[in-house]
Simulated assay, not measured.
Amino acid sequence: MNSDLWSFEEGFKRNNELQWYQKKNAEVKDGRLVITGKREQVKNSNFEAESTDWRRNREYAEYSSSSINTRGKYEFQYGIMEVRARIDTAMGLWPAIWTLGISKPWPANGEIDVMEYYRVKGEATILANAAWADEGQYNAKWDNAKIPFSDFLEKDPEWPSKFHLWRMEWTEDSIKLFLDDELLNEIDLARTVNPDGFNPFHQPHYILLNLAIGGNNGGDPSTTSFPKHYLVDYVRVYQK
């Protein structure tokens, strides 16, 4: 993997997720990025028994995975991003392709979820979203598309074993999110203005790829067999 473009996250990060992010769970094999989720105990190097922070008060992680991003190394504003990937749709897994704006804290920086897969009210779901700031700290406004995964399985029962193409078309006016050329969500950027007047989708964003496990949305992975693999064939960004 090209370290001129990509960096790794380490440890517990967000959403009360169960995995410990570490570099060794990502490798390039046969020209593809393979992110592996494992069931294994990893000692929490930040452990503090008395802490109220979930990132610190767990002595061990019971799972490991990887999360990579281009922060500070590669950013882009507008254009087309394409990611060809194969996701595992087992219970407890939460793979994602997303971007974050380079300035301001979340959600004022803007978040674009080109792909998320997790369970919504127990139902497997593909999501395509954008988030920006609402009134009050850490409050987000969302433009969500939630498509039941069963819709994709009805069209193709072999869907989980195949690679699929996620695409974002981003202009000053809109963000369009596609899966295999099907438009899942169109976000009107006239509406995505933070309370202070800043539009987080009129600034450069960086790219994140990760496989989360459990947490607020991933579901319970305890009955899932591991290891699990999230394969990325390529990430491409085009400008007009």
Rank of each mutant, 00 (worst) to 15 (best):
N2T: 09
E9T: 09
E10A: 07
E10W: 04
F12P: 03
K13P: 05
N15C: 00
N16F: 08
L18T: 01
Q19T: 14
W20V: 07
Q22E: 15
K24S: 14
K24Y: 10
D30F: 00
R32V: 06
V34M: 04
K38Y: 13
Q41P: 09
V42Q: 14
S51G: 03
S51P: 07
T52I: 15
W54P: 00
R55H: 04
R56T: 13
R56L: 14
R56N: 15
N57K: 04
R58I: 11
A61G: 08
S64F: 03
S64T: 13
S65C: 02
T70H: 00
G72I: 01
K73E: 10
Y74R: 12
E75R: 06
G79C: 09
I80N: 07
D88Q: 02
L93F: 08
W98Q: 08
T99I: 08
L100W: 05
I102K: 01
S103Q: 14
P107R: 08
A108Q: 07
E111I: 08
I112D: 00
D113L: 10
V114S: 00
Y117W: 11
Y118E: 07
V120C: 07
G122N: 03
A124D: 03
T125N: 14
I126M: 05
L127H: 13
N129L: 06
A133L: 00
E135N: 10
G136Q: 11
Q137S: 12
N139K: 15
K141A: 00
K141P: 00
K141T: 04
W142S: 02
W142V: 09
W142N: 00
A145P: 04
P148Q: 08
P148I: 05
D151S: 15
E154K: 15
K155T: 12
D156K: 11
W159H: 13
P160N: 11
H164W: 04
R167N: 06
M168K: 07
W170S: 02
W170M: 04
E172L: 10
D173Q: 15
D173I: 09
D173C: 06
I175W: 06
L177N: 03
F178Y: 15
N185M: 08
A190I: 06
V193H: 10
P195F: 13
D196W: 01
F198S: 11
F201I: 12
Q203D: 13
H205G: 15
I213S: 03
G214Q: 11
G214T: 04
G215T: 03
N216H: 09
N217P: 04
G218A: 06
D220R: 05
D220M: 07
S222V: 02
T224M: 12
K228Y: 06
Y230Q: 03
Y230L: 11
V235Y: 00
V235C: 04
R236W: 13
Y238Q: 02
Q239P: 02
Q239K: 11
